[in-house]
C-alpha cells in the first residue's frame, strides 16, 4: 500500500516537473505559429493546378502521402525494406516448424462470437482497402491500410483457429510469396519511369511521379476522373499488400502450438 502511494506521488511529481520545465521554455524557442517556408513550399506544390511552378508537383491533395512516397520516396522504400528484413528475422526463429500444418482441430470460441467476428472481419478489410485506395485524397496510406487489414487475420486466429485460417487459404508459403511479390512490385514501380524513359531515349528519374521539365514521362495524374497522385496510388496498394501479408505470416508463425514449437529447440542441448 505504502509502495503504491509512493509510486503515485513520484509519478505526479515527475509529470508536474516536466510540465513546469516545458512551460518555462525548456524545449527552447518554439516554432512561430505561422507557416514555415518548407510547409509553404509543400502546400504550394502538392496539389495546385494553377500554381506557376507546376513543374514540381505530386498532384495529390494529401500532402503527407505525397511527402512520404514522392518528396522523400527513397526513404520510404528503404523503410519497407527494413520492415521486410525484420519479418525475415522473426521467421528465421521458427524456420523448421513454420511450414508444417497442425493436425489438431481446435473448435474456437462460441457461435455468437464467431458470427459477429465474421461480420466485423469484412468491415475491417473494407476499411483497410479504402484507406489504401484513398491514400492520396484523405489521411492514410499503405502502412496504415496494411496494419488495419492485418487485424482481420489475427482476430480470426483468436476466435476461430489456426487451421480455419489455413483451410481458408491463408498459409505460410502464400503469405511469404505475396509479401515478396509486393516488395518487388514497389521496386519496379519506383524504376518504371526511368526504364520507360531509357527505352524511349529521353531523361527519367528513379521514383519519378509526375513529368519534370527535363524528364517528360510520368504516371497519369488521374484515375477515373479522381486525382490519383500518379505513382502514389500504386505504391499505397503494393505497400498495403506487403504490410498485411508480413504481419499475417508473423502471427501464423507465433500461433504455432507448443508441441511443434518445442520440437524446434529440442536438439539444441546436444549441439548439432
Amino acid at each position: 500500500m505504502l509502495r503504491d502511494v509512493a509510486f503515485a506521488v513520484t509519478l505526479v511529481v515527475f509529470i508536474v516537473l516536466l510540465a513546469v520545465a516545458t512551460g518555462l521554455g525548456g524545449l527552447g524557442p518554439l516554432p512561430p505559429p505561422r507557416l514555415r517556408p518548407l510547409a509553404v513550399n509543400v502546400l504550394n506544390t502538392t496539389y495546385n493546378p494553377y500554381y506557376a511552378a507546376r513543374n514540381f508537383t505530386a498532384d495529390a491533395p494529401e500532402a503527407v502521402t505525397a511527402v512520404v512516397w514522392d518528396y522523400r520516396g527513397l526513404d520510404t522504400v528503404f523503410e519497407t525494406a527494413v520492415f521486410y528484413g525484420a519479418i525475415i528475422g522473426a521467421l528465421a526463429l521458427y524456420r523448421e516448424v513454420s511450414k508444417r500444418v497442425e493436425e489438431s482441430r481446435p473448435r474456437g470460441l462460441s457461435t455468437i462470437v464467431k458470427v459477429s467476428t465474421a461480420v466485423m472481419v469484412v468491415a475491417i478489410a473494407a476499411v483497410g482497402v479504402s484507406t489504401a485506395m484513398h491514400g492520396q485524397l484523405t489521411p492514410g496510406g499503405g502502412f496504415q491500410a496494411g496494419s488495419i487489414i492485418a487485424v482481420a487475420p489475427v482476430v480470426l486466429l483468436v476466435v476461430f483457429s489456426k487451421s480455419f485460417l489455413e483451410k481458408a487459404g491463408v498459409r505460410y508459403a502464400k503469405m511469404v510469396a505475396l509479401r515478396s511479390a509486393a516488395l518487388v512490385g514497389i521496386g519496379l514501380a519506383a524504376l518504371a519511369v526511368a526504364i520507360a524513359a531509357g527505352a524511349m531515349g529521353c531523361w527519367g528519374y528513379v521514383l519519378q511521379n509526375q513529368p519534370k521539365p527535363d524528364a517528360p514521362l510520368g504516371y497519369p495524374p488521374r484515375a477515373l476522373d479522381v486525382p490519383s497522385g500518379g505513382s502514389l496510388m500504386v505504391f499505397n496498394v503494393l505497400e498495403m499488400l506487403a504490410v498485411a501479408a508480413g504481419f499475417t505470416v508473423v502471427f501464423l508463425v507465433l500461433s504455432t502450438s507448443e508441441k511443434l514449437a518445442k520440437e524446434e529447440v529440442v536438439g539444441e542441448e546436444h549441439g548439432y
Binding site: F143, Q144, S147, I148, A150, V151, V158, F251
Partner: peptide, 21 residues
C-alpha cells in the same frame, strides 16, 4: 490523423492480440 490510423490499428488491435497469444 495519419498517425491515428496506424496507431489505432497497431496499439489497440495487433499489439494486445500478440500479447494475448
Amino acid at each position: 490523423p495519419d498517425i491515428v490510423l496506424v496507431y489505432a490499428a497497431v496499439a489497440v488491435g495487433i499489439y494486445p492480440l500478440i500479447l494475448i497469444l
